[in-house]
Design a binder for these strands. Structure first.
Length: 255
DNA sequence: ATGGTGGGTTCCCCA
């Protein structure tokens, strides 16, 4: 049983690389972010033909999340309770087999002190309340996606240069830590302690080839999910060559 | 080296 997460930065633009990746890796569950497609235009037939059920929650131009699974996706939730229809589409959850899955695209936040940063911090507090109210941490649960936050300086290519910068700041890390305190663990750190394990490299400035990256795509696991987690692997190959997303897939395997 | 690239029913905004 494995679960993957991938910010594809437009699913339709990514299809020439996405479909071969899906065929080759065949994850049991795949959480996508930044699909950037309304539900009516979601490329469902190609994905269904590959053997997947789909739950999607998209909007025009920005954001958009989806869950793909080989087994049925039950009890699908979309957005936060109380969201109006204009709310940004950044949250989708469901139950697949005996796994509770929550797939997130956390706001980027732009820069500290900006209105977008304020939005990010408010969104993270909304997330904490939603997760705390709705979910049972005794369950086998995975909260995954693009968090747009590094846990610590090991996740940052230039910790001094990016001190208190967006994705690395103390308020962001504290907001994430507050969510972790509900009873979650950083899946990758069960298996790997080293620095320099990145999941995102800017498209600009040849960042990938300079390995100027960040680890911002995560698997947050409850105790029982952590216990059965056998590996967490970052697929760096997916960042190489033409037509890559700026994020790579991360794949967690469970016994 | 404060630049640059990539995506979107695009002519600016977002990352």
């Amino acid at each position: 049983m494995n679960i993957a997460t991938w910010n594809v930065n437009s699913l339709r633009a990514r299809m020439p690389r996405f479909l071969p990746w899906l065929q080759e890796n065949q994850p049991d569950i795949l959480c996508l972010q930044e699909t950037k497609v309304i539900d009516d235009l979601f490329p469902r037939s190609e994905i269904e033909d590959a053997g997947y059920n789909i739950a999607f929650f998209g909007q025009k131009t920005y954001n958009g999340v989806a869950i793909l699974a080989r087994q049925p996706i039950e009890d699908v939730v979309r957005g936060f309770p109380g969201d109006d229809e204009d709310a940004q589409k950044r949250v989708i959850g469901g139950i697949v087999d005996d796994f509770v899955v929550l797939n997130l695209y956390v706001p980027n936040g732009s820069e500290l002190g900006s209105p977008k940063f304020e939005f990010k911090m408010n969104w993270l507090e909304q997330l904490r309340e939603f997760v705390s109210d709705r979910y049972d941490f005794a369950e086998k649960m995975v909260i995954t996606g693009d968090f747009n936050i590094t846990f610590d300086d090991r996740d940052v290519y230039d910790p001094e240069g990016l001190r208190e910068a967006i994705h690395c700041s103390t308020p962001e890390r504290e907001a994430l830590a507050k969510i972790m305190e509900l009873g979650l663990h950083d899946g990758l750190r069960k298996h790997h302690e080293e620095a320099g394990l990145y999941t995102w490299w800017d498209h600009r400035g040849g960042a990938f080839w300079k390995d100027r990256g960040l680890r911002i795509d995560h698997f947050l696991l409850t105790d029982s999910a952590l216990e059965s987690c056998a590996s967490v692997v970052i697929d760096r190959e997916a960042r190489k060559g033409k037509g890559a997303s700026d994020h790579v897939p991360v794949i967690a395997t469970f016994s």
